[in-house]
């Protein structure tokens, strides 16, 4: 009986070849290169002072796990813990849902607004916006009287006293469109319109592609080009998941009608800060609300009506102006 002879000649030859000095060195170089590349790739980890407490939860949410209320509570608690570590502030985070039978609307009286920018800075404070690089949801445009051409407007007006004679002021923020182009273009569905008309952003889902910023005709969306800076003493501890919790670098943010306040019945921060009472907010579905009264009785317009976004933010006028002593109403 003849045993099968294994022909090991080729394998032996290969082994011999692998043991040459040249191939050893080549492999060493490749190995060293690999180690270096790996080291470079993980080197940002050493700068990570506070590893996020919710990293595992992040991973699960990246893999499409529907959260129960208990898991949401855990998530909110973890975010609060992260905020505590980063800013040293005790905060409460929740996510109030839309109130049934409510559709929010905003109306702004151009005859009254005097452009003092109190709304801008009240909003920054309320919604924990980055102070540097600067993110502001509201931009106030100073417009010469007698024109609606925004190209004649100025953001950087800097008078000693406002209003400037023969000028009016047009604050612009997210118009919470009924047909929002920003939602249509989002490739990952990180932004959507809720029942009450507020378009929200999930900052953990946003990939920062900025398509929505390009799509918005009102310049309402803002991108965090860098890690936001918020002074610890100025953190607003009353936070909601889809609104004013601190954002990270590389995500979009925008006005959300202060949903952490308005969904609990309160008025938005910009409205309460406005010294002139030019801002009006309420439920469009309630015929007796302030905004409904305005839509019914005043001359109103929406910005860039021709682009078909159907904003829920309305501008209106009084019959006569009392500004600059030019009227007596």
């Amino acid at each position: 009986m003849q045993l099968p002879v294994l022909n090991n000649a080729t394998a032996y030859k290969g082994a011999r070849k692998g043991a040459t000095r040249r191939s050893f060195l080549r492999k060493s170089v490749a190995f060293a290169g690999g180690i270096t590349a790996f080291a470079a790739a993980i080197s940002p980890l050493k700068d990570m002072k506070n590893a996020p407490a919710r990293s595992l939860e992040d991973w699960f949410r990246d893999h499409y796990k529907e959260l129960t209320q208990e898991q949401k509570d855990t998530l909110f608690a973890d975010i609060a813990k992260d905020v505590k570590e980063q800013y040293g502030v005790d905060v409460t985070i929740d996510q109030p849902g839309p109130i049934p039978g409510v559709e929010y609307g905003y109306a702004l009286n151009l005859s009254r607004c005097n452009g003092n920018r109190a709304c801008v800075h009240a909003c920054v404070k309320e919604n924990n916006q980055s102070r540097s690089p600067e993110i502001q949801y509201i931009r106030v445009v100073e417009m010469p009287a007698g024109t609606f051409d925004l190209e004649n407007g100025s953001h950087n007006f800097d008078e000693a006293l406002v209003p400037k004679p023969d000028h009016y002021y047009m604050p612009i923020q997210c118009h919470q469109c009924a047909d929002p182009p920003c939602v249509k273009v989002c490739p990952v569905e990180a932004t959507w319109q809720e029942e009450d008309g507020i378009t929200v952003i999930d900052y953990d889902w946003c990939i920062g592609c900025r398509y929505c910023q390009a799509a918005c005709p009102y310049w309402a969306r803002h991108f965090n080009f860098a890690d936001p800076y918020i002074p610890e003493e100025e953190i607003n501890p009353d936070m909601a998941y889809l609104s004013n919790r601190p954002r990270a670098r590389g995500v979009m943010e925008k006005c959300h009608f202060c949903l952490q306040r308005t969904r609990k019945g309160r008025l938005p921060a910009c409205l309460e800060a406005c010294p002139t009472g030019a801002r009006k907010f309420g439920n469009l579905l309630d015929p007796n609300s302030e905004v409904s009264q305005i839509l019914r009785t005043k001359r109103i317009f929406v910005l860039k009506e021709d682009v078909g976004t159907r904003p829920r933010f309305f501008y209106y006028f009084d019959e006569r102006t009392t500004r600059n002593g030019r009227g007596t109403a």
Partner: peptide, 24 residues
């Protein structure tokens, strides 16, 4: 009773709006 003129708060650092924008 006329609403007084007021001091205004600081303007934005990052916004520009074309040729017509003042202080650019």
């Amino acid at each position: 009773p006329a609403f007084p003129t007021m001091q205004l708060l600081p303007g934005p650092n990052t916004l520009r709006m074309g040729e017509g924008d003042a202080n650019i």
